[in-house]
Amino acid sequence: MQFLVSRFNPERDEKPWMQTFEVETWRGMMLRDALLEIKRQDESFAFRHSCGEGVCGSDGVNVNGTNRLACITPVSELKAPVEVRPFPGRPIIRDLVVDMSQFYRQYRAVDPWLVRKDPMPEQEILQSPEEREKLDGLYECILCGCCSTACPSFWWNPEKFHGPQALLTAWRFLADSRDQAEQERLDALEGPYRLFRCHTIMNCVEVCPKGLNPTKAIGHIKQLMLKNAI
């Protein structure tokens, strides 16, 4: 099977270029296995990967135009020649490795932790099964970055728009019955940029390898904001 892989060495190249590799495939082979095979053929080829089972979120790449996790993408699903590029819109460090600092900054900006104003109880803070259920579809995010780097609004304003990943996380804590900073969290999302650059394009929903729905979470935030405003 033929693979076209984006190569970029900042010390040598002006801009990224595509290199062709032939890889012998086997039944059940994942794209990560193919990339490892390419690395065996050319040691200088660089890409991030770790757990190999869609849990760590390290090996997000753009495959035939769609952001996916290489380790859970069967090559049998892909149309040859398979074009593998780094995430769009992020500065390339080398080959498929991109600089995700901006993405992590946006994540940090939504205070991704529980805020308690009451004194901490001796025991754990209890939740009813219904309250716990509200976090399903939110807490599973692995921060792979497939969604935010597929979002046109994040491409145009990555330094001001939080992006789908950070906004999903913002809703994860707004929806948490144990959190006590609703007002502060909503205030921090005001203005035309941080939340409202989302135009419900829904690329995020399409690409999320965990099947999460950031657009829905963003809708919930807007509704809660409206409820608080009138």
């Binding site: 005001e190 203005g191 035309p192 940029y193 939340l195 409202f196 807007k222 904001m225 409206l226 405003a229």
Partner: peptide, 13 residues
């Protein structure tokens, strides 16, 4: 709504 509510206000409008 405050001056900073330009995001929500525009969206609702």
């Amino acid at each position: 709504m405050s001056r900073t509510a330009s995001g929500l206000k525009a969206w609702v409008l």
